[in-house]
Design a protein around this nucleic acid. Structure first.
Length: 334
DNA sequence: AAGGCTTACAACCGCACATAC
DNA sequence: AGTATGTGCGGTTGTAAGCCT
């Protein structure tokens, strides 16, 4: 269906926003909130399309938007998340408080991407270009391996997005914030940013945990790897009781990725960790999900949060650090 | 000083998806 | 079920500022 674009609305202004326009938009939103972006400009006395107003608000005028240089920590976070999520800027932004997807995207394209290129690293795959080519040349199987990885990654991403949207659609103070300050009305100019990240969507934690366990990346903000939990080279598995483990119908197929995505503390609630450390596995070949050799099943004995990740299956988490490149190295290139 | 080039980032565009009717 | 509309997202473009010659 055709939809009129901003440029088709004759007489509407384009280009940089003036302080006056900003003021009008801010004043309107503070008083009325933003229920309908299409009708907002007219009501606010702006010669802009609704889309333009929305963008301006989200990226610049919101009271919780952080401006200015990215810190080293933020940069490293972006690199880590990009390695896992690719160009899913909104997903990456969800893990960087007060930063917008647009800002992160710009920063990536103008700063980090260049550094990757300088170092001879493919910014898309996070792998050295020469190694990539030579390894493919040496081992034709690598190509299909890469395709498997990519497919797994895309599947995981798609599910993350779905799950994330599901969670965001549930009523909560966080969601009210995202929708626009409680029913679309800005209740306070100091509206608090979402405080708690969704634990089960904490991709960064997943990545850091696994990467830290595998390659001992030095990062002050990383917790020491829990070797009993995050095994070095095999997919990590959480235990479950034997009876439920046999109920394959209700079993959840999970991977190191999504386990890492669950807050570790949440899963290690008590001292009796044997329940988690010594998993009862049901191992089987599953054409629909297994992209490698084996798919591991975990049964949600207690019917907890892991069920949300019922079918993510990503194996071989050696990427991209297997090439011996550290985040620090990338960050140090200017 | 002036013009051209590069960089950084704000803003736009088009598509996809969700939802309402 | 089909259509219209609103919103979110990622890619791309436009432009101001800084740099270089």
């Amino acid at each position: 269906m055709a939809r009129s674009a901003c440029f088709e609305n004759m007489g509407l202004k384009k280009g940089p926003w003036t302080p006056d326009e900003d003021q009008k938009l801010l004043a309107y939103i503070e008083e009325h909130g933003f229920g309908n972006w299409r009708t907002l400009p007219e009501k606010a006395g702006l010669q802009r399309c609704g889309k333009s107003c929305r963008l301006r608000w989200i990226n610049y005028l919101r009271p919780d938007v952080k401006r200015g240089k990215f810190s080293l920590q933020e940069e490293q976070t972006i690199i880590q998340l990009h390695a896992f999520l690719g160009n899913r800027w909104s997903a990456i932004a969800a893990h960087l408080p007060k930063r917008t997807d647009n800002e992160i995207k710009n920063y990536w394209n103008t700063h980090i991407k260049k550094r990757f290129t300088k170092m001879g690293i493919d910014p898309t795959t996070h792998k050295p270009k020469s190694n990539l080519l030579s390894s493919v040349g040496r081992n034709p199987g690598t190509l299909s391996h890469m395709a498997q990885w990519e497919r797994a990654r895309l599947e995981a991403e798609a599910r993350f997005v779905r799950e994330s949207k599901k969670l965001m659609s549930k009523p909560s103070p966080e969601n009210n914030y995202k929708r626009g300050f409680q029913d679309g009305v800005l209740k306070s100019s100091k509206a608090s940013a979402p405080s708690a990240r969704s634990q089960c969507l904490d991709v960064l934690k997943a990545w850091q945990s696994v990467a830290a366990g595998m390659f001992a990346i030095s990062n002050n903000n990383l917790e020491p790897p829990r070797s009993t939990f995050f095994n070095n080279s095999i997919p990590i598995v959480i235990g479950c009781d034997e009876s439920s483990a046999n109920e394959l119908d209700s079993a959840a197929v999970i991977s190191d990725t999504c386990i890492g995505g669950i807050a570790q503390d949440e899963l290690m609630l008590d001292d009796d960790r044997s329940n988690y450390q010594m998993p009862k596995l049901n191992e089987r070949f599953d054409n629909s999900m297994s992209l490698h050799d084996t798919t591991y099943h975990w049964t949600a004995a207690t019917g907890n949060i892991l069920e949300d990740f019922s079918d993510i299956s990503v194996h071989d988490f050696g990427y991209p650090f297997e090439q011996g490149i550290s985040i620090e190295q990338i960050s140090n290139i200017y």
